[in-house]
Design a protein around this nucleic acid. Structure first.
Lengths: 343, 343
DNA sequence: TACAACAGTGCTCGGTGCACC
DNA sequence: CGGTGCACCGAGCACTGTTGT
């Protein structure tokens, strides 16, 4: 006895006084079934509350209708929204989502991917710890079914990916700062091991080049790759003598945002008045901040939907491709003219 | 290069020149196996890279090693932390987590629970839309396996639950406000259809009684059950004539917190100076706020762990029980003496 | 005879555990 | 005691046999 009170296809057949194979044919929409048979079987199934056992179906068909997701950790509220987008689309299509986190460790990440492969999930959606890890690369290529990457790129791997155009957004923001006279702009961001960081830096530097300024010369502080130490780093930078201190900050991520804001309030520095600020991601709680903070935003739920759509299309037989989603620069109150700059 | 996923127990048996059932016994640590057999089979399994198929195991055993979670929505960062706690414990125990959201609709919620039952998940963890819904109640009782509720109570249903002691925390906070001379305290919170709200109100009112004050008489504004309209409500209250305006606010939930803070900054009212404020949940971004906001906090990750532990213990045969987790009132800078009150 | 519509059989998926040697 | 054969779990599917028109 496996499931107490679970009704099988045999029970339905007995109830309807037909053969098991007939029930199977009705339920799988086989062409050679009379209307009479169809209604009879469907009635019996309904009366008994029958639903096919997904486990048995999986064993037979080799598919599970499960999709696995591996994120770095759930701390980032961004992923909560991505998950909600993914889950929305998958549920509607009859798929179910399994979530797992890697705890930002490549070894755990490969374990999780392997686990999901053994569980025979039909597809994988990944926001990997790094897109340079060889162990992750191996784990991905060992997974023979569809894989969709969230803002990651593993060259020469046949995966699809949902990419965000961080570069444009950051370029727009940086250009705005430069046009307002800022020259010492500190970009505090996470690890360059993942694409979002690299793209942000690229957009940042592109803005300098477009303005005819060499980023290496014009800024004393360019890029700081540190998320967990964003706070310490921001304090350090804000304590520099005024003539060397950055006149503007750009936070590339949630941790950087919190770190910078914390440093500013500790040192009694108001964003916008004393130092300009642009953050990435329009988080709900930013609305309560005054002055209102300029941001480069993206639609996380939409990204999740796009990833799930991609999964479904790959399962439908499409070949892997990339989708690029936009980011938008919102000018608010924290991008002001640099001190001493003519307005 | 042979597909390591498609290696079956038969392949191992053939490789080791033994019967399939012998392989099964070795791998499931049956006592009656010779050392010779054990080493031979294990060697063959290792050489072929064999790992048992969970789908086939599920069909035979009637268990899936899957645990389902249904939350109201992922928007609440609180749940992200809960999930991380659940996932951490379950993964270590060899279980896998399926997440689903009800979108705050009871009909969808029952659909999700039914879906998870059909998927043959071994246990359910639920943060239901309401704990008064009869359709949800039915869906839960139709699920014959372990169910753990997250801060919900369905009387006369044999479910376990992880409860938070919101009442004590809120009572402590309210008592602090009362002792500082506040009499018009506005508690803005979510729907009373779920336990957290009811417990918060209970703690709130208990503090009044303990102080010998009738809450109905002493406060013009007692409880506002509105989360999505927290902002509008806060604006409305803050615009009242000073003699009728609340001198303190308590936000019972994330949405209420954001709504109140937004209203305050719009109207140029500083928390702490003009109006005292206590919020629920110590969210990471509250750290960046100045003045620092007093809060009633709880450990979300710990709650997740407790829920997962409970699931494991129920699967181990324990009878359902309730676990109560504490909340703590943190006095910070936004609980000041009421205006006109002697200090 | 031809054919549609079904019944019935038997093997498959991969693994488990009992009866039996 | 150590090891093997075999009947399951629930559904899918191909194939043969049977019925009625």
């Amino acid at each position: 006895m496996s499931n107490s009170g679970s009704v099988t296809i045999h029970d339905v057949a007995r109830r309807a006084n037909v053969a098991v194979s007939s029930v199977s044919r009705v339920l799988s929409n086989h062409p050679d079934v009379s209307i009479k048979m169809k209604t009879k079987v469907e009635a019996a199934a309904r009366e008994l509350g029958y639903s096919p056992d997904p486990v048995a179906q999986s064993l037979r068909r080799g598919t599970t209708n499960l999709v696995g997701l591996v994120v770095r950790d759930y701390a980032n509220p961004f992923f909560a929204e991505v998950i909600s987008g993914i889950e929305e689309v998958l549920t509607e299509a009859g798929y179910t989502l399994i979530v797992t986190s890697s705890g930002r460790e490549a070894t755990q990440e490969t374990e999780r991917i392997t686990m999901l492969r053994q569980r025979r999930v039909d597809a994988l959606i990944l926001a990997t710890v790094s897109d340079k890890s060889t162990s992750t690369r191996k784990a991905i290529s060992a997974f023979k079914k569809p894989v969709v990457l969230l803002d990651r790129e593993f060259p020469r791997l046949s995966t699809a990916s949902i990419l965000l155009d961080h570069a444009s957004g950051l370029q727009a923001g940086t250009t705005d700062l430069l046009s307002k006279g800022h020259r010492r702009i500190a970009l505090i961001t996470g690890t360059p091991d993942i694409r979002p960081t690299r793209e942000r830096v690229r957009g940042f530097e592109q803005a300098y080049r477009d303005a005819g300024i060499d980023p290496a010369e014009a800024t004393e502080i360019a890029v700081v790759f540190s998320a967990s130490f964003a706070h310490e780093k921001a304090v350090e930078l804000l304590r520099l003598p005024v003539r060397r201190r950055p006149t503007a900050f750009i936070a590339g991520g949630v941790q950087a945002t919190i770190g910078i804001l914390e440093a500013m309030s500790e040192l009694g520095i108001r964003a916008g008045d004393d130092v300009s600020l642009i953050v990435c991601d329009d988080l709900p709680w930013l609305r309560v901040m005054r002055p209102q903070i300029s941001s480069v935003s993206r639609d996380a739920v939409d990204m999740g939907r796009a990833a799930a759509d991609m999964v479904l299309s790959l399962l439908g037989g499409s070949t892997p491709s990339s989708v690029m989603l936009p980011t938008t620069y919102h000018v608010r109150e924290t991008t002001q003219f640099a001190p001493g700059s003519r307005r």
